[in-house]
Design a protein around this nucleic acid. Structure first.
Lengths: 174, 174
DNA sequence: GCGTATGTTCAAAAAATATTGAAACATCAG
DNA sequence: CTGATGTTTCAATATTTTTTGAACATACGC
């Protein structure tokens, strides 16, 4: 579907008119959207990642916007998210001020980072809460069974908290 | 805060007026809500589970509604969800037609079930898609790098698909 | 330095999701 | 059987999340 390298009439400033996604690209996007959905990552973000993932070369802002048919705002925010998660990288072609994007080499590592960024804060916030809760339960009247449950919950939380950081070093500062 | 066993004026039919959550119960609820949020489980469901989790005895429909201050509809749907996930069990007291609820013994097992119910269908749906996509990529012009990526994706999907069922036997039919 | 190509921000619109409540339904104690 | 109790259903409503687009910033090639 990509117009064979006919000299694009888009010299300088006219609308380049981007090719819509091929059937396979669209199907891959649906795959990523489904998976992303599980972790609450919005459709637009998954679509962007999918496009980069299926592209042989790095892709620039306008191409993303054009081929996916989404707004500038969404592209910008989506790239910000992916960038913050360390899931995409940008190259800058020499004489151009335009950035071109591609997926980070290891999808697996990206996923771990993503997971961590969702789970870790929750675990951290929870630690003191669970301490208070367990103490409260022990202090006042409370069935032994409930105390047992709560104690186990706290134990798990602590364990998860110490295990998580081992999975991968935190992304270095930018 | 629970009214000491004074003879409840609620004989038969007057509004029982339930105690609001204690500070610790509320804090535990927030914990469950946060964790549930990661998987896209709604607040009301997490609150219900939390209440059962912190209760020494099984809790009935009206108590859930009363103490959490939520609508009948939400309680019913929430219990349905938890029941379907096998996260909650009901007992029926002898001379009463009312059901009383408590959390399934193993929270860990419940979580695995929940995870599976979210992830497995996505993986299953994706399998044929990924096959088509990889084939498509191989057929037409496509950079070797992209083909490699897609192939790996399919490999992972297949692996996850065969690993998941091993984690726990599927919940038996009701 | 200027002016424009390139991105970002953010308030408002749209879409998706969750909750409510009243009516329908089911069941069992009498 | 029957009626009151207990639960589910579902259309309407409320809430939350996502997307849009136009105004605003930035910086780079000229």
């Amino acid at each position: 579907m990509t117009p064979p390298s006919s000299k694009l009439s888009a010299r300088r400033k006219s609308r380049p008119s981007f090719a819509p996604l091929s059937a396979h690209e669209a199907e891959l996007a649906e795959f990523f959207v489904r998976m992303a959905g599980i972790l609450g990552v919005p459709r637009s973000v998954a679509e962007i990642y999918s496009l980069l993932y299926a592209s042989p070369d790095a892709v620039d802002f306008d191409q993303i916007q054009g081929r996916l048919g989404m707004s500038k705002g969404s592209v910008s925010q989506g790239l910000k998210f992916l960038r913050d998660q360390g899931m995409v990288l940008s190259l800058k072609a020499p004489g151009s001020r335009r950035e071109r994007w591609q997926p980070t080499p290891s999808l697996a590592a990206s996923l771990v980072t993503l997971l961590r960024s969702q789970v870790l804060p929750a675990l951290e916030q929870s630690s003191p809460s669970l301490d208070r809760i367990v103490q409260g339960a022990q202090g006042t009247q409370a069935s032994p069974a409930v105390i047992e449950r709560l104690t186990q919950l706290r134990r798990w939380n602590a364990r998860a908290l110490e295990l998580f950081p081992l999975m991968l070093p935190p992304p270095r500062e930018s």
